[in-house]
Design a binder for these strands. Structure first.
Lengths: 147, 147
DNA sequence: TTTAAATAGTTCTATTGTAGAACTATTCAC
DNA sequence: GTGAATAGTTCTACAATAGAACTATTTAAA
């Protein structure tokens, strides 16, 4: 491909992607997870979907070091949203689960997420959206291979 | 559209988008802006493209408060990458510009960005990429209206 | 023309997210 | 049984951010 065109596409891609990320995170903050930060919501969602999971799982999923996870998990623990208990066979391992409060909060958050994103995505028809997601997944796969 | 299908699409969209963002930022960190954080690189790029600009411009562009910009700009200033000077007509306004060092660094960073993203995007053909970017821009526009 | 409101930016404080090194406790492998 | 590997925590340092209080300056209104 022509060099100049490629550079223009890269500029367009990065600027659109940055704008989407900024606006999504602003909307999520305002309307989806009032009581949590964006990162906390993502961590809670991960635990919700992968219960029970460990700090190492989270560190691996989000590409951050384990001490960063400890700090985050401590904050969620202090809010009473998650519980920790040690594996009885291998006492190094600490399993993380949502508490009843955590589950309630995430149920509400997920409902709002579906409502808010559903409203936004209703501007795309099914084929358009499917193709867009398929492209995103392809990009994710390529990035995984190139990382 | 069917409710369950929409929810699945939302799950696929959010998980692909999050993975893309994580991997892009990891790659950028490793190969594009070694001496800067991701946020600093974005701020420097904004100044590079909009020289001279103000702290308020940056706050507006990235949706953050002005005190956050002051903190960021201070760090870049201390690295010798940007310079500030007051408008002589309206002495409240401080214009930001890249220093020679800042320009050199951003020239290198931009070259690396083109190289790295060019390599990744070469896995898409021109029509595919154009359509994908067009969809991203459409999403950005809708988010802007819905925000 | 003086005074009040608006604007641009900074300072200060507090919280969150992060990396990295040193550490504890536990399990595994030889 | 001892040394290596693993899971997680603690501690320190820094970046990013919000929000309130502040300074300096300009604009608008009385």
């Amino acid at each position: 491909m022509d060099r100049k065109l490629l550079h223009e596409l890269i500029e367009d891609y990065t600027s659109a992607m940055n704008e989407v990320n900024r606006r999504i995170s602003a909307i999520m903050n305002d309307r989806v997870h009032e009581e949590l930060t964006g990162d906390q919501f993502l961590t809670m969602r991960y635990i919700q979907k992968n219960e029970p999971c460990t700090s190492s799982d989270i560190a691996n999923e989000f590409g951050i070091v384990k001490s960063a996870v400890t700090a985050q998990v401590n904050r969620l623990y202090e809010k009473g949203l998650i519980e920790r208990d040690r594996d009885s066979d291998d006492r190094r391992i600490v399993y993380l689960r949502l508490t009843t409060e955590g589950k309630t909060l995430m149920k509400e958050g997920t409902d709002k997420l579906y409502e808010v994103l559903g409203e936004i995505l209703s501007n795309f028809d099914k084929e358009e959206m499917t193709f867009f997601i398929w492209q995103l997944q392809k990009l994710a796969r390529i990035l995984k291979e190139n990382g």
